[in-house]
């Protein structure tokens, strides 16, 4: 049988995402933003898709967002995860359609809801030097 704690995939930083993952290690949510047209881009990439310039730089954002959508996974077999578990697509406060994926760590699957306000938190990924941006419910 698989041992979930050993199998959870570890993200690999590349040239485009180095600032994002370095920020996460410092518990800062750093999103790529175009120095020319101010457009936020996530996942990180090398060129701004709005103005085609190599002007994306990491910028710390508020860490606030709302759940745009989510699902509750019930199938077994995803390494590192025991169903049921929820995965959220979070729309960041900075820009419509700017999405990040994560788990709302303090929210059981049955309490997930589209439109729920969340705030970034960070999870050290066991067995690696990577830190994952994650989410928790915004306190009312």
């Amino acid at each position: 049988m698989t041992r979930p704690e050993l199998c959870r995939p570890v993200p690999v930083a590349d040239d485009a995402s180095a600032a994002y993952w370095a920020g996460a290690r410092e518990h800062r949510l750093v999103i790529m933003r175009c120095g020319d047209c101010a457009f936020y881009v996530h996942p990180p990439r090398a060129v701004c898709p709005r103005c085609q310039q190599e002007t994306l730089v990491g910028e710390e954002v508020s860490g606030r967002g709302t759940i745009y959508s989510y699902h509750v996974m019930h199938l077994p077999g995803v390494p590192g995860f025991t169903p049921p578990y929820a995965v959220a697509v979070v729309e960041l406060a900075e820009q419509p359609g700017l999405f990040a994926v994560g788990n709302v760590l303090d929210c059981p699957p049955e309490e997930m809801a589209t439109g729920m306000a969340v705030r970034v938190t960070f999870e050290e990924l066991a067995g690696s030097d990577m830190t994952l941006p994650q989410w928790s419910r915004e306190q009312a």
């Binding site: 959870r8 995939p9 996942p43 199938l75 995965v87 994926v101």
Partner: peptide, 10 residues
């Protein structure tokens, strides 16, 4: 890298 560590891969 932005999906699989969260259990989002199928």
């Amino acid at each position: 890298a932005h999906l699989a560590p969260y259990g989002y891969s199928v």
